[in-house]
């Protein structure tokens, strides 16, 4: 499995990470190594097997449509680095 520099940069972008030049090399190496190992899944005898979604077989776990009083706003905002008028402040978003 070969991972190109373009590929690792594309992936980093999707994950919203900046990689320094020296990190790119390291991560490329690690990713290649791990992917080569992970390839063994292709040798597994899985023909005809369903994909597992989670591990337990539970289904239809629903909630009643009943209001529970909302949370105290100050507590919800207490960890924000910047807030204004009860909202989270971020740099201007241009559409």
């Amino acid at each position: 499995m070969q991972v190109s520099k373009e590929e690792i940069l594309h992936i980093a972008k999707l994950a919203d990470l900046n990689l320094k030049e020296e990190e790119i090399e390291t991560y490329m190496g690690h990713l290649e190594e791990i992917l080569n190992f992970a390839k063994v899944v292709n040798k597994a005898p899985i023909d005809g097997l369903e994909e597992s979604i989670g591990v337990n077989e539970a289904y239809n776990i629903f909630r009643k449509d009943e209001i529970i009083e909302s949370f105290n706003r100050d507590e919800l905002l207490q960890n924000a680095k910047e807030q204004q008028q009860g909202m989270f402040k971020i740099p201007k978003v241009i559409n």
Binding site: E66, I67, I68, S70
Partner: peptide
Amino acid sequence: STKTKIFCSCPTEFGGEPNTHCCP
């Protein structure tokens, strides 16, 4: 037009002070 949000029990009502129909 449900009373509560899709994955938590906060009200869906329109309007309201910012971030007051919210929970963790």
